[in-house]
Design a protein around this nucleic acid. Structure first.
Lengths: 106, 106
DNA sequence: GTAATACGTTACTTTTCAGTTACGTATTAG
DNA sequence: CTAATACGTAACTGAAAAGTAACGTATTAC
């Protein structure tokens, strides 16, 4: 669980997968519903992306008859935030200050 | 600039590059100083990673004689936060609630 | 019960990307 | 001024990952 964060980063690095997460933010969707959004891609490609998201825990899939309902799990994103975004947050202001300095030097 | 966010995600998806950002969080470092940290990799591999980080604006490099001093720019991380982490933050609590429901159903 | 629906598995191709090798340039220390 | 230092460029290799194609299974509507 320690550096599973690497897998989560990898999962998030793909634009198709991020679009899927965006979709699921509005509520659970069946696999077919997700597939239909990506008209320029085969069913299998999209399903692979869902697989990746499920493997890292960003998506939870539950069977409902012949359907698979996929829902979002935002917890891994929180882990990314706590480890990688939050520690850099304090630098946002200092970065702006430095840029300000650079500008004033000219 | 709109979906340069994709490039930023890609840049952040590599563990070596994230380690470099972690290093620079403590202050600017010359290219050689960064290279020396990664003993299991050639100079060129590390330099390529620095290139990628510079291309997406996460690292700013300034020449100082024959040295290159690399410093961190946290602004792109802020963009990631605003677009991708913050919108999901509201779901952290609801995810926990749902997990709670799931547990209680058993 | 059969046909359509929803999804899965496997094998393959293509592309992308990390890393190395080889060669080269600019800067500075002595 | 020459030798070591600090960094750069370009071409190649290997492995991972995205995407496709072909075939297969379980479920439900009629």
């Amino acid at each position: 669980m320690a550096e599973d964060l690497d897998n989560i980063w990898k999962a998030l690095s793909d634009p198709t997968r991020r679009t899927i997460l965006d979709l699921l933010r509005q509520g659970p969707k069946t696999t077919t519903e997700i597939v239909e959004v990506f008209t320029d891609m085969t069913r299998f490609a999209v399903m692979k992306h869902i697989d990746v998201l499920r493997d890292v825990g960003l998506v939870i899939t539950r069977a409902e008859g012949r359907r698979r309902v996929n829902s979002l799990n935002a917890v891994p994103i929180r882990q990314i935030y706590e480890r990688w975004v939050s520690p850099f947050a304090e630098l946002w202001s200092s970065t702006l200050l430095r840029l300000k300095d650079d500008v004033e030097k000219r």
